[in-house]
Structure formats: C-alpha cells, structure tokens
Computed example of a mutant assay.
Amino acid sequence: MSNFVSVAELNELRTSGVPVRVIDVRWRLDRPDGRADYLAGHIPDAVYVPLDTELSSHGEPADGRHPLPTTAQLQDAARRWGVRDGDVVVAYDDAKGVAAARAWWLLRQAGVDVRVLEGGIRGWRDAGHDVTTDDVTPEAGDVTLTPIGADAITIDEAAALPASGVLLDVRAGERYRGEVEPLDPQAGHIPGAVNLPTVLHFDSAGRILDHDTVRATFAAVGVTPGTAVAAYCGSGITAAHTALVLDEVGIEAKVFPGSWSQWSNTPGRPVAVGDQPG
C-alpha cells in the first residue's frame, strides 16, 4: 500500500463512507505558523495541526529545535483532531509534503493508518475542488496510540552510523557544505554524512518521481535495500520526508530528530565542511 494518496483518491475516500480525518500541516521555515493560510482556504473538514506545538515538544537548544513529542502528547493532539481508532488520516501541506511527512512519520510509528496527499493543497485546488475557510473543531476522538520513538536515533547513534551504514544529510547543498547557516550556531555537516537534498525526489507539483528513478538516486549515494540508513536535516522535519520517500520505495530508514540543530548546539561535536563527507 502506498504512503501517498492522489487528489482523486482522497476525494473518493471522503465520499466512500471510509472514516477519514484530513489534517492540514502547513509549516515552513519562513512561515512556521500556517493557521492564516489554513483559514484562507483548506480542504473541507480538514483540521489545522500546528507542527511546532503538536508534532514537536520543546526543550533546551541542545535538544534541537523540534524534539519529539511524547506518545501521550501526540495522542492528546490526535484526539483533538478528531481521530478515532480505525480512521485513515490524510496529511497535507503546501510544501511538497515536507511538513505533512512529519505527521506521517510520527503517526505511523503510533499505529495509525496515515497517508500524505500528493500535490498538497495546490493539487486539490488545481483539480477544481472547493476549499472552505472555517476553523474546523471536530468532536474529540478516542484514538489510542502505540509508543513512538523506535524509528528515531540518538546523537551518538548518528555520529557512529557512517562507519556501518549511510547517514543522509537532506538539507540544501550550501548548508551541507557550510557556506551558509541561517538558523544554527555553526555551519557544516556531521562528519561522514553524505548530502542528498530531499527535494530531488519530487516533481515541481509535489508528486514523487517514479520509483526506479528514486531508487537510482539513493543507490548513487550507497543506499539500497538492506543498508543501515538514517536521515537528518536542520531540525528533523525534512528528514522525515526522506524517510517517507525511502519507505515508499521499499527501504527502511530511521531519522535523527535532533538533526543539525542539536548537533551544532552540543559542545565538542566535530563539524565537517565542504562537499565531501569527511
């Protein structure tokens, strides 16, 4: 079963009688609060999910910018969204699925049947479907989540992974090389990590490329089925997107949720610069 649904498939699900909860996870680095965009127009019955507060927790800088929520925190949030046991959850955003993938990654670990809408809100509109501007407040759900965290690795595990597998840095190349760093105290990358920006796996409309092409892109940096692989980014959001793509093409992967924001805020951690892993 695919991790993605097309606009047509979502529209069919919504009218088929299958219990579906649609969540709007609009979030970007330059616009972390997507509520205004949600209120300007969203898929009917979709619930707005604030990524910073419901798909993340908060701690010290050395914890990273988007630490994982606890299972109890995520369950409380999912119940607020109206999710009930047995529901299909479909997440979307306006950034090629990058933010929606964070919801997918967490909810999948928690035992929820969750998908990401290909093309996001733009694809929905382009297909001619209506949007609404109400602030949806559903009846509270009763979903019971299983413990999350097994698909995450620690900072020490991230440091050790290049010796036995592949650690993917999925940020833009200029951040990996250490040429710019707009958010964190140091520029560069984790020694041994290889750069593969997650945007390479999608077309301009936010649809995943054909699976053979995607597998070839991963294979070029040493990632094939059976490879021990984990992804990191700036703060664990974009890395979940790469985990989504890897799972879609049959490759298991983990995520370092602290990512560069944790690494660069932890004294004593070495930093590599340039276009090579070392």
Rank of each mutant, 00 (worst) to 15 (best):
R175F: 01
L74C: 05
I148C: 05
G17H: 02
G222W: 02
V47Y: 01
S204Y: 01
A228Q: 14
A101V: 06
D135R: 04
Y232C: 05
V170T: 14
G149R: 04
T213S: 09
P67C: 07
T227L: 07
P147F: 06
E181S: 01
T213L: 03
S259H: 05
L55F: 03
A100H: 08
S261W: 04
D30P: 06
S259A: 14
F4E: 07
I190A: 11
L29H: 10
A160F: 04
T217F: 05
Y48I: 02
R102P: 00
R175G: 07
V223A: 02
F256K: 03
V245M: 12
W124L: 01
V245R: 07
P185S: 05
V89E: 04
L13H: 02
V49Q: 11
N265W: 09
Q262A: 14
A240Y: 06
V5A: 07
A243Q: 07
V22W: 02
T213I: 02
P32E: 13
V83R: 03
D30S: 15
L246Q: 09
D151R: 14
A8P: 03
A46S: 13
G119M: 09
V47S: 00
G86T: 13
G165E: 04
V255I: 11
A78D: 04
D24S: 00
P197I: 12
L107I: 10
A205F: 00
A158N: 03
Q276S: 13
P182A: 12
D24Q: 01
A187Q: 05
P32W: 08
L39E: 11
D113I: 05
D45G: 04
L246Y: 07
G97L: 10
N195L: 13
G178Q: 10
D30N: 14
G278N: 15
S2E: 12
R79E: 13
A152H: 12
Y176T: 08
T266H: 10
S264K: 04
I121M: 08
L74T: 02
L244T: 11
A99M: 04
D134S: 13
N11K: 15
V22G: 02
E174S: 14
G111L: 09
H201K: 03
R108C: 00
E248D: 15
D212A: 15
A99F: 04
A228I: 00
P257L: 12
R269W: 01
P32G: 08
A62M: 10
E139I: 11
W124A: 01
L107V: 11
I155G: 12
Q186I: 12
G278Q: 13
D151K: 13
F218R: 02
